[in-house]
């Protein structure tokens, strides 16, 4: 298997809190990789460091064989990493279609001059963007809401829209931060199908999730964080039996659903 992303000794400190210490992990092309751990273990911090929202204090990411820039979200996206947020962050005044079209920003080029003159290139690009955005809405199954302002969508549809928007950036690695949070069993089931479809279409998926059943059923490999340290990394069946993990996570207060 080819390595897609390698995190090497990532560290991040907030004041007195060591949110991440020396975290190293490897994600292979084409897999679904789970990042789990109790609340406050540093999962979301890892996402934020990976996607450039925070600058790490130490360590580096190697993506597709070369180092990722840190602290520059738009450059990370350009390299092919897209993310969603734990608490959905859509562009609330834009329609569903526009949200996805905005996601296509980094793959398009039209500048002010092209926009003002509406030259052929710009018009063609805009047409392709619209079509592609519509395709993506279909892909996640919410194309009938294309013209609905995103804040009026239902919770589950907002989650799907956020995934569609992330896919619009044409990522190789899709990082999902608790995509099933707040979903009922049916919705979670549909989400699982969607993620499998995404993987099937050649996009590597990394996800943070609390729903252990989802993680165990979906992920090829799982890493466990506890107090900012990686305490295990293996296939779900092995991790499930790991004693440190059971102590830290499964046994430690937070129960599996």
């Amino acid at each position: 298997m080819i390595t897609l992303l390698e995190a090497r000794n990532i560290g991040k400190r907030f004041g007195g809190l060591q949110a991440l210490s020396d975290v190293s992990l490897t994600i292979r092309k084409g897999e679904v990789y789970g990042l789990i751990g109790p609340n406050g273990a540093g999962k979301t911090t890892f996402f934020n460091v990976l996607t450039g929202a925070y600058t790490p204090d130490g360590g580096e990411f190697v993506f597709n064989g070369s180092e990722l820039p840190t602290g520059k979200p738009h450059k990370v996206v350009a390299r092919g990493i897209a993310r969603t947020f734990q608490n959905i962050r859509l562009f609330r005044e834009l329609t569903a279609l526009e949200n996805v079209m905005a996601g296509h920003h980094i793959r398009t080029k039209a500048g002010v001059w092209g926009v003002l003159t509406q030259n052929r290139f710009t018009r063609e690009e805009e047409r392709l963007t619209t079509e592609r955005a519509y395709e993506l809405l279909k892909y996640v199954g919410i194309e009938r809401f294309a013209d609905v302002v995103s804040r009026n969508l239902s919770y589950g549809d907002q989650r799907r829209l956020e995934i569609a928007r992330a896919l619009a950036t044409e990522p190789q690695l899709l990082a999902l931060d608790e995509p099933a949070a707040g979903m009922n069993a049916t919705e979670t089931g549909q989400l699982k199908v969607l993620i499998e479809q995404i993987r099937h279409d050649g996009i590597t998926v990394m996800l943070i999730e609390h729903d252990v059943k989802l993680v165990m059923g979906l992920c090829d490999r799982v890493a466990v964080l506890d107090f900012g340290k990686k305490i295990a990394e293996d296939v779900p069946a092995v991790v499930q039996k790991n004693e440190a993990v059971i102590a830290a996570y499964l046994g430690g207060g937070k129960h599996a659903h």
Partner: peptide
């Protein structure tokens, strides 16, 4: 246009706008 959408995205949620690659 693409530019107007990027502005609107930035206005609605700057962090999310960065996360989809808007400079």
């Amino acid at each position: 246009s693409r530019v107007g959408r990027a502005w609107a995205a930035m206005r609605d949620d700057e962090l999310a706008a960065k996360a989809i690659g808007i400079n």
